[in-house]
Computed example of a mutant assay.
Amino acid sequence: MLTKEKLARINELAKKSKTSGLTEKEKSEQKQLREEYLQNIRGSFTNQLKTVKIIDPAGNDVTPLKVKDMQKRNEKH
């Protein structure tokens, strides 16, 4: 999870980008922070998928095979 300071810095750079523009160093920092943020979001989403089970109205497990495979791989680790 990103710290509050990093999230604040992302927002600060975004605001500055819209108003006065960023230096090359700030652009690089913004790119790195955004990538870290996206990795965090993707990791959280993947962890959520590892716990998903889809049941149809008849009570049958209809969880997609791709998700089941991911869950099985997770159990092995």
Rank of each mutant, 00 (worst) to 15 (best):
E24W: 01
N11K: 14
T19S: 14
N60P: 00
N11S: 15
S44N: 14
N47L: 12
E5T: 13
G21Q: 06
G21V: 05
K18R: 10
G21R: 04
R73D: 09
K27T: 05
A8R: 13
V52S: 06
E75Y: 04
E24N: 07
L2P: 00
E29K: 00
T63C: 05
N74G: 07
L38G: 04
P64A: 02
Q39N: 15
A14T: 03
K53S: 10
I41C: 09
K72C: 02
T63L: 04
R9N: 06
I55N: 07
A8S: 14
G59P: 04
K31G: 01
N60W: 02
I54M: 11
M70W: 03
E36N: 07
F45H: 14
K72R: 13
Q71C: 08
N11H: 12
E12H: 10
F45C: 11
R73S: 11
K4M: 08
S44T: 15
V52N: 08
L49I: 03
L33A: 02
R42T: 13
H77V: 12
E29F: 01
K53C: 07
K72T: 12
L7A: 04
K18S: 09
Q48D: 10
E29N: 02
S28R: 12
N74A: 14
E26A: 02
D69K: 11
L33K: 00
L2A: 02
G21A: 06
T46D: 09
L38E: 15
T19G: 02
A58V: 09
F45M: 14
T19V: 15
N11E: 15
E26K: 01
M1Y: 11
L38R: 14
G43E: 15
G21M: 07
L33V: 03
K50V: 05
I10Y: 01
S44C: 08
Q48G: 09
G59V: 08
E75F: 07
K6Q: 11
Q30S: 06
M1R: 10
L2Y: 01
K53M: 11
N60M: 11
K4R: 13
M1Q: 09
M70A: 15
G21K: 05
R42H: 13
E75A: 15
I41Q: 13
V62H: 06
K18N: 12
K76T: 10
